[in-house]
Amino acid sequence: MSKNYRAEGAEIDKRVGALFKAAPAPMKPYSQLVSAVSGDGALSGKVKELMALSISIAIRCEDCIVFHLRAALKHSATRAEVIEAISVAIEMGGGPSVVYGGRALEALDAFAE
């Protein structure tokens, strides 16, 4: 039985939103950092989100995987691009990244439904 990744994404948004309200002083500069680095530059926003997805898999952050996969898809990342990003994570993270890469693939398929 696969997870409900759409609901999980909404829960992540809710928790992050609550943190922004509870701790605006540190979260405002963090938000500015995210805005400064996530837009198109020498690398496209899509490439940056795919990079963030790979890192999320390699560091084994389940919520980060959902967050950055969803963002990559919003940037029109294709299934093939996501699978290559998962492969890079496996190269860098070894066996544990295989397990978390499987989670990312499961989430990709769930978002595609």
Score class of each variant (00 low, 15 high):
residue 107 A to T: 04
residue 17 G to T: 14
residue 91 E to C: 10
residue 67 F to L: 13
residue 80 A to L: 07
residue 95 G to M: 11
residue 16 V to K: 10
residue 89 A to R: 01
residue 112 A to C: 10
residue 94 G to P: 04
residue 60 R to K: 15
residue 60 R to H: 15
residue 91 E to G: 13
residue 93 G to P: 00
residue 84 E to T: 08
residue 2 S to E: 10
residue 101 G to P: 01
residue 31 S to P: 03
residue 58 A to R: 09
residue 8 E to T: 13
residue 74 K to T: 05
residue 44 S to D: 09
residue 20 F to E: 13
residue 40 D to N: 10
residue 81 E to G: 04
residue 46 K to L: 05
residue 16 V to N: 09
residue 35 S to Q: 12
residue 48 K to C: 08
residue 57 I to L: 07
residue 51 M to P: 04
residue 100 Y to T: 02
residue 82 V to W: 00
residue 35 S to P: 02
residue 89 A to S: 06
residue 52 A to L: 06
residue 102 G to N: 11
residue 105 L to S: 09
residue 25 A to S: 08
residue 2 S to W: 06
residue 43 L to F: 14
residue 43 L to V: 05
residue 72 A to N: 15
residue 101 G to A: 06
residue 31 S to K: 15
residue 34 V to H: 09
residue 52 A to R: 04
residue 45 G to M: 01
residue 33 L to P: 05
residue 72 A to T: 12
residue 46 K to Y: 07
residue 62 E to I: 07
residue 89 A to D: 02
residue 16 V to M: 07
residue 58 A to S: 15
residue 97 S to T: 00
residue 42 A to E: 15
residue 78 T to W: 06
residue 18 A to D: 15
residue 106 E to Y: 00
residue 66 V to S: 01
residue 29 P to T: 08
residue 10 A to Q: 07
residue 53 L to R: 01
residue 69 L to R: 03
residue 81 E to H: 11
residue 65 I to D: 00
residue 56 S to A: 14
residue 93 G to L: 02
residue 44 S to M: 06
residue 3 K to T: 11
residue 74 K to A: 12
residue 2 S to N: 15
residue 41 G to Y: 05
residue 108 L to R: 01
residue 15 R to W: 10
residue 13 D to H: 10
residue 81 E to R: 11
residue 79 R to Q: 15
residue 51 M to Q: 07
residue 82 V to M: 02
residue 9 G to N: 13
